[in-house]
Design a protein around this nucleic acid. Structure first.
Length: 558
RNA sequence: GGCCCCAUCGUCUAGCGGUUAGGACAUCAGAUUCUCAUUCUGGCAACACGGGUUCGAUUCCCGUUGGGGCUGCCA
């Protein structure tokens, strides 16, 4: 029954494609494209390449069967969203596990939003999280440039072909005119956009086009859409299965008038074709333009890449109680750099994100601690379709687990590296004496089964143990010390004592004063650390050393 | 408004027609401990709703509701 239905739809699917293609052909016959001379004038210069030349310049990749060529294409806005990191991780993983290629492409087609140094932020994040692309800015590759702003020749060459075939046209609508159209459409309750009757310039004669160019107008290039929204098109998403959309009927902009650069849709067509991308994995916000993208690939007669639309990571809005996008403005956790600056272990962030997209990961890692995101497979079909809520508690748990699993020398190395790059002056002072730091961070880490798990980030780690440094130690002025107990302990204190001897002395002090062992320990604890909760007291004293211990206890005695 | 996507404990999820609906985080008890953190034991907690299909639905179909997205010469 299901099988019958399925094949029916498959049949229907290919049937509707045939229909569309047929329509294009009819239309191409009916409608003449622009002459080569006019195309050169419209674009500002003649296209540099033919499609055939481009196909030769960027040949099919020679990769093993089943290898995915993936890509992430962030815009350089000076801010890298956590969602971009998430996509990078998925794209790299998909390429890695299939012996494919992971590309980073800079989507810098919006000259208005360009920010200095923004590409560095993206590269810095990719590098810090171990998500270096195989191809991309500074990484090289045969399919560049990996900056869209440097690929104008490619876009213009492709659009020239569409202009020639009558599948695109120069449009002279001004911003005001389009605003006007939008308002009218809204008022009438119609869909907004340039389509059908609203596409004023779609059938301009060559003379009319020339006249407008002569008057100094610069056109955008629009798609000459022959779609009909009453027709359905289908696509089999790698995760979501069969998806149905109305055909696109909008004459969307392909090339912008102000800078001659492409819009996202057109760049996606040209770049992912000529970079030979095989799997476009992207946020689910792109789902609703899939019909358009499929249409573009069909127009060019190109095989479209496979698509995977990944659910975004959201956050619970405290105000409304609803789920919403991680906000660049109000949520620090939306910013990838935030994790680096605050000193989150990158592995913890990645583990957290990876468990969302590959849900069996955590359980497997529990069984086999050697499991990493690189040796646990990402099953495309298991990529979640509904958006997850960002959960700081869970991230903290991953961080505690990760830091807890680190051998002391590595823990020290990581803390030192962080402090030197992002730390405060106090932090830098703390890591200056590596031997002392090693002692401090080594406390209660001998037994791998019972490691303390109170370190979350590198910065919080240093803050947590700040009392070990005299410069950062803050004496507790609230606590009511039992000076007799402190004095009594000091009288018998010997830094060379082993733990049993040391404890016996505490018990002796408690007995002589008729108080509990714990009270004596607590007095010492507060005197030494200023806090009422610390790791093992004996270890603290050992690390601090006899002189510092004596000084602190004397300081507490009044 | 139109179109599209989504729906299992508070959160992330397992499940792919028959299960006491499993795990993890969080939370709550208890044990261990010089405090804290660990570690161990246990508890609370979910199939949004309504129709179908079926001997049988959390699972398949339709609808409702709810949430999210798109509706830009931003991506």
């Amino acid at each position: 029954m299901t099988a019958t239905k399925c094949s029916y739809f498959l049949f229907f699917h290919s049937f509707s494609i045939e229909l569309t293609l047929l329509k294009h052909k009819e239309y191409i016959d009916m409608r003449n494209g622009l002459s080569k001379d006019l195309i050169a004038r419209v674009l500002g210069s003649a296209p540099k390449y033919t499609i055939e030349q481009l196909e030769e310049m960027f040949p099919q990749r020679n990769l093993p069967d089943g290898a995915f060529v993936t890509r992430v294409a962030p815009s350089p806005t000076g801010f890298m969203h956590l969602g971009t990191l998430y996509q990078m991780m998925i794209a790299k993983k998909l390429a890695q596990q299939s012996d494919g290629v992971f590309m980073l492409r800079i989507e810098d087609t919006d000259t208005k939003r360009e920010v200095q140094g923004a590409v560095d932020v993206i590269l810095k994040c990719a590098d810090s999280f171990g998500l270096q692309p195989d191809e991309g800015p500074t990484y090289g590759g045969e399919y560049g440039s990996y900056y869209q702003s440097e690929r104008k020749d490619v876009y213009h060459s492709v659009v020239a072909e569409l202009l020639e075939r009558g599948l695109a046209y120069p449009c002279f609508l001004s911003a005001e005119e389009m605003e006007d159209i939008r308002n009218k459409q809204k008022a009438a309750g119609w869909g907004t956009g340039i389509y059908g009757e609203w596409a004023r310039d779609r059938d301009l004669t060559e003379e009319e086009i020339v006249a407008r160019l002569d008057s100094g107008l610069v056109p955008s290039i629009r798609l000459y859409s022959t779609g009909n929204k009453d027709n359905k098109i289908f696509y089999n998403d790698k995760v979501r299965g069969r998806l149905a959309f109305p055909e696109n009927e909008e004459d969307i902009v392909l090339i912008k008038s102000n800078d001659g650069l492409p819009t996202y849709h057109f760049a996606h067509l040209c770049d992912d074709h000529f970079m030979r991308t095989t799997l476009v994995q992207r946020g689910e916000e792109w789902l609703s333009s899939l019909n358009l993208h499929l249409q573009l690939f069909r127009m060019m007669g190109w095989q479209n890449p496979e698509y995977v639309h990944v659910a975004t990571i959201n956050k619970l809005d405290e105000q409304t109680g609803n789920s919403r996008k991680l906000s660049k403005r109000t949520d620090p956790e939306a910013n990838t750099m935030h994790y680096l600056i605050a000193g989150w272990p990158v592995e913890a962030v990645l583990n957290y994100l990876y468990n969302i997209v590959a849900s069996g990961f955590e359980e497997e890692k529990n069984k086999k601690p050697d499991t990493t995101i690189w040796n646990y497979p990402l099953r495309i079909k298991k990529i979640p379709t509904s958006s997850a809520l960002f959960n700081t508690d869970k991230l903290e748990w991953w961080a505690k687990e990760f830091i807890g699993s680190l051998p002391v020398p590595e823990l020290v190395a990581r803390v030192v590296a962080w402090a030197n790059e992002y730390g405060t002056d106090a932090n830098k002072m703390q890591v200056a004496d590596v031997d002392y730091l090693t002692g401090v961070l080594g406390i209660e880490r001998d037994n791998p089964k019972r490691v303390r798990k109170d370190f979350i980030t590198w910065s919080q780690t240093l803050e947590n143990v700040a009392f070990f440094w005299d410069e950062l130690f803050v004496a507790n002025t609230e606590y009511e010390f039992n000076s007799d107990a402190l004095r009594a302990f000091l009288a018998t204190y010997n830094p060379a004592d082993d733990k049993d001897t040391w404890w016996a002395k505490i018990v002796a002090v408690a007995e002589s004063l008729g108080i509990k062992n714990g009270d004596v320990a607590m007095n010492l604890r507060v005197a030494l650390s200023g806090r009422t909760n610390t790791p093992d007291l004996y270890s603290i004293m050992s690390v601090m050393g006899g002189d510092r211990v004596k000084k602190r206890i004397e300081g507490a005695v009044k």
